[in-house]
Simulated scan of single mutants.
Amino acid sequence: MAGARARRRARRAGARAVIVPVRGDTAGLLNRLGALRAAGDVPLVGDERWPQAHRDAVQAIAGGTEPPADAAWATLTSGSSGSPRIVLRTAESWSASFAAVGRLMDAGPDDAVLLPAPPAASMTLFSLAHALGGGPRPVLGSADRSRASCLHGTPQALRAVLDAGPPPGLRAALVGGSHVDDALRARAADAGVRVCGYYGAAELSFVAVDEGDGLRAFPGVELSIRDGELWVRSPFIALGYLGPGGPLRRDGDWATVGDRAELVDGRLRLLGRADDAILSASATIVPEEVEAVLRAVPGVRDAVVFGLPQTRVGALVAAFVELDGTSGGAGARKSLRAASLTRLAPAHRPRRWYAGELPRTASGKPARAEAIRRARAGEVDRLGV
């Protein structure tokens, strides 16, 4: 064992994080990732849609800092709450969950997993690592989707697949990134697709899983609530960051990224990040709670709730909603008004409404920071509710 560690350290001398361009077919990408791993380098998959300034910033971090000896993979945080960061993790921090993920998707090496998000997304890179470790074969981009038996993506991605007509053999979907609403789960079930939702983070990997009766601890994970903040102990936690740090904090074997939550009868209820809370007059509003109400309104695809600074009261609650193509207009406004009046306390009701297509991260999650910027800058339409 000591000799193996010494050989690994020797191979790792001068190791670097390498940005991998996405060119050619999936097999070629897997071969490049496998070769970099075999050489002891740390792959970080790029995205051709990155602005040049973003690409230069990532390259400066990747080229200017040597990763620790046990780093095997590098991913970017989604950027849903601000600037992306490079997260480093060991090979084992992902491979330890492969068996559980395979069971949840009922998929093995003879199956194919549809990956709607680009390879730069953490969830897709996980599935590529899983494929290298004997998991289902990845189906990326414009590849033939008809052979896919499972999907790993966001609720938005699952909805798009259902809209387009799911592959005939699709039987399971592992869905993360944001909450899976009951309507989407029921629609998937009608199409013969079993949905397994999960909560995770780039720094924590899988944390909790929802097979239809609420979020419970993912196999091998322990959960604890400390002063309203979720802490996790598991073998899936990342090493930390390459370059500038982020929200990951540790206390021995436990770690947190600052998500607020509560545990009720063994089920996890997420309440958003502490720094997302809106202080309005004497009330503290958790955006996640208001967003859940708005997403349940017919015709609303998604919603982002945030605060608009206001003298005397602190902030006004505002909502940026994305409406579907068939339920917009007066009907949606009437339904939103009714939901606000009947399901939200007065302090929680949005006072400003915006409507449009929500900006999204590479994986398909709402890009909160950019959505808020656009609304505050007047770049999206006001909605009269």
Rank of each mutant, 00 (worst) to 15 (best):
R103L: 10
W73C: 00
G79I: 06
A319G: 09
V87M: 09
G63I: 04
G246E: 05
H130S: 14
Y199N: 02
A121E: 07
E289H: 08
R16E: 03
L140Y: 01
A17I: 04
H179M: 10
R85M: 10
V290S: 10
L174Y: 11
A277C: 12
F206Q: 04
G169P: 03
V20S: 09
V139A: 03
P109T: 13
A355M: 13
A35P: 07
T342A: 14
A186R: 15
H348V: 12
D251F: 08
S80W: 07
R89G: 14
A148I: 01
V58P: 02
A345S: 11
H348R: 15
H130V: 06
L215S: 00
T326S: 06
A281D: 15
G3S: 14
D47W: 12
S363T: 13
D324I: 01
W73K: 07
E203C: 07
V300R: 00
G165M: 11
D251S: 15
R55D: 07
D144A: 08
A274C: 10
P346V: 06
S178G: 14
E357M: 12
K365E: 01
D110R: 15
P366K: 05
G79R: 05
S234A: 13
A27K: 09
S340P: 08
D106Q: 13
R85C: 02
A319H: 03
R137V: 15
G169Y: 05
G46W: 07
G165F: 12
Q52H: 10
